[in-house]
Nucleic acid binder design. Structure first.
Lengths: 219, 219
DNA sequence: GTCTATATCTCGATAGAC
DNA sequence: GTCTATCGAGATATAGAC
C-alpha cells in the first residue's frame, strides 16, 4: 500500500495547525463569545475533546488566536516603514500597505474592535510586549518620521500622536462600518467595485498630506 | 397612611422604563451576548420573570435598546447641522458636537462596533428607516454642504463621501481604540486630562480643514 | 403586575475506551 | 492522539401562585 499515508497528507502538518486555522476563522467571524468550540472542531474536521487536549480551554485557544491576529496586524505595519523615504512617500506607502491589509483581512479590525469593547486588556498586553521587544517600536518610528519631516519644513508642525490617530481612524473606519456606510450611500455598486479601494487610499492620502501642508491656514 | 404610595415613587414612571434603563447600561457594557438577563433584572430592582413579561425575549429587549442607542446617536448628529453657516464653522461645529457626544457616551461607538462585527443588519435597517423618514437625511445634508462649499471655492473639490468617512473615522478612532492607544503612548496622564478632548477636536479640525484647502498640493 | 420555582437547553469541559 | 458519551454550570424562558 503505497498510499497508506494519504489521509495524513490532507492535514499537511499536524492537528494543531488544523485547529488553529479553524479557530482563527471562527473567532474572527463570531468573536470570543459568539464562537462555539463545536464549530471549530467541525471546521477542523475533528471533535471537541481534541480541542481540549491540545489547548486546555476555550480561553487559551482564544488567546492563541488573538496573538496570531495581532502578529499579522503588527508585522504588516512594520513592513510599511522605509527609513530613507521622503515623508510624502512614507505616508503614501503606509496608507497603501495599511488599507491593503484591511482590505484582504476585513474581519481583523472588527475582531479587534470587539476585543476593545471587552476591555482590550489582552491586546494591550501584546502591544506592550511588542513595543519592548522590537526596539524602536513601530509607533515611535512613525512619530519620529513626522517630527523629522516637520523639522525639514516638508510639513507643518503637528502633534504626531494626534496625526497618527486621525490617520489610522480615516483608514480603518470604512472597514469597520461597512454595512452602515453601504446603507448611507445607497449606491452599492460603487463600494463593491474593484477601483474603490484604490480610490479610498488616494482620498485619504490627499486629505492628510494636504492637511499637513506647511503653507496652511491658521485655525 | 399618607405615604402608602412611597415605594412607587422610586420608580418614577413605570417598570418598563426601569427595565429599559437597566438594559441599556448592561448591553452597552457587556454587549448582546455578554449581557445577562439576571444582571438587567438586578439593576432594575426586579426579577427575571418580569423582563419576559414586558419584552418577550432577550432578543426583543436588545433590539429595543439598539434602537434607543441609535436614536441618541442620530439625534445628536442632526443637531450639529446649521444650514446657514460657512463651511468652516459647520465643520467645526460638527466635530465639536460629535466628539462631545462620543466623550460623554464612550460606550456607544464600541457598542455599535460590536454590532457591526455581527453583521450590522439591525443598525443598517434603522439607518434605512431614518433616512426615509427624515427628509433630507443627515448624511445628505453634510454631503451637499461640502459640495456647496466647493462650488463657492471655500474648499477644494473632493468626493464628499470619502471626506465624510475620513472625518468620522478620525473623530471616532480614539474612543474605540482607547486601551490600545493608551498603551502606545505610555504617557497616560495626557489622555486622561481635562484638556485632551478639546485638543483632540482642534487637531482633527486643523487637519481636515487644512486638508480641504483649495490652494493645496497636487497628488 | 410581580413574585418563586423550575423547566429546558446550550455549551464548555471531562471520563474513559481504543 | 483520537474518539464517544456524558457531566455540570449557567443561561433563557415559562408555569403558576399571589
Amino acid at each position: 500500500m503505497v498510499n497508506a499515508g494519504n489521509a495524513k497528507m490532507i492535514d499537511r502538518g499536524n492537528t494543531e495547525t488544523l485547529i488553529l486555522d479553524a479557530a482563527m476563522q471562527v473567532f474572527l467571524e463570531k468573536g470570543r463569545h459568539g464562537a462555539r468550540m463545536q464549530e471549530i472542531a467541525d471546521r477542523a474536521g475533528i471533535n471537541k475533546a481534541l480541542l481540549h487536549y491540545y489547548f486546555r480551554s476555550k480561553k487559551n485557544l482564544y488567546a492563541e488566536i488573538l496573538s496570531r491576529v495581532f502578529r499579522i496586524f503588527y508585522a504588516r505595519i512594520t513592513e510599511a516603514h522605509r527609513p530613507g523615504l521622503p515623508f510624502r512617500e512614507q505616508l503614501r506607502l503606509f496608507i497603501d500597505v495599511y488599507v491593503d491589509m484591511l482590505d484582504s483581512n476585513p474581519r481583523i479590525p472588527l475582531f479587534l474592535a470587539r476585543e476593545m469593547s471587552e476591555g482590550g486588556v489582552i491586546v494591550s498586553d501584546f502591544m506592550k510586549r511588542f513595543q519592548q521587544e522590537m526596539d524602536p517600536a513601530v509607533p515611535d518610528l512613525i512619530v519620529s518620521a513626522i517630527e523629522q519631516a516637520a523639522s525639514r519644513g516638508e510639513i507643518r508642525r503637528v502633534d504626531p500622536r494626534h496625526f497618527l490617530m486621525s490617520m489610522i481612524g480615516a483608514c480603518i473606519f470604512f472597514f469597520v462600518a461597512k454595512p452602515l456606510v453601504l446603507t448611507i450611500f445607497k449606491d452599492s455598486g460603487w463600494m463593491e467595485s474593484q477601483a474603490f479601494v484604490a480610490e479610498r487610499k488616494q482620498a485619504v492620502f490627499d486629505l492628510l498630506y494636504n492637511g499637513l501642508n506647511p503653507g496652511g491656514i491658521s485655525s
